[in-house]
Design a binder for these strands. Structure first.
Lengths: 122, 122
DNA sequence: GGTATATTCAACTAAACGGTTGATTACGAA
DNA sequence: TTCGTAATCAACCGTTTAGTTGAATATACC
């Protein structure tokens, strides 16, 4: 329990059922029973899934009599987006620079692989 | 094995070591041994991690003699970003609409919780 | 050929995960 | 107070996962 926030969010969303629950909560708040209805799962299982989403900060719960409606929290998504975008950008940056570099040396044979056969071997 | 693409990417990034590897690969391609160096892990373990990233489509491998340098693939990140942004936007949309709704009815007591004590209880 | 290096494969283990069933708690209504 | 409903807790189970060690494969160098 209690891993770093990013790990928790990513692994919470690694499960397709939980992603579906998030998708549905994006439309409207829902109780455990409501959430469980479409799945071939016990409410206990869904309750557990909800707990995982809650621990990851993706969902908050309120109380309405016996019911404990779940509500999607949008803020946590930013954590992920920031992380993802950062490294995606860096990787693309690097790719772009490589492209430029290759454009600057148009004589080098860039063919399939290992174009330099400086003697030896076979 | 072979879960849906989104699950694979999310669960690949749910591990802090793997996220760190991605972060480093965003800077420069690296071999298994290079990647393993800073961690308190065997190369075999790192090789496995790399395999997970590769299966998720986050990393591609080339060959350079005995070495098999890993290269970060930026495209797959978009899958995640799209998914995340979609539901984040919906959730925020909904939040905004709720705000507007509350603004339209300024007489309702919105206090802490359950402000309506219509008789009974206690 | 033989040796060194880089990587992977195979088998194993401990812990975490996703699910179950059964009991328990919390609350509202009669 | 008793009953019904919503949700959680607790114990258990099979599978996956992250790690290990040890053997195997691939490639370059001499």
């Amino acid at each position: 329990m209690s891993a770093d926030p990013l790990s928790e969010v990513f692994s919470a969303l690694a499960d397709p059922t939980r992603r579906d629950m998030v998708a549905r909560l994006a439309v409207a708040d829902a109780t455990v029973n409501e959430l469980a209805e479409p799945y071939d799962l016990t409410v206990q299982a869904v309750s557990k899934h909800l707990r995982v989403l809650e621990d990851a900060g993706l969902v908050s719960r309120t109380r309405d009599a016996q019911r404990r409606p779940a509500h999607l929290e949008a803020e946590v998504f930013d954590l992920m987006t920031k992380w993802i975008e950062r490294y995606r950008r860096e990787a693309e940056e690097r790719y772009r620079r490589l492209d430029e570099l290759l454009a600057q040396m148009p004589d080098q044979p860039v063919g399939p692989n290992k174009p330099e056969n400086k003697g030896k071997k076979k």
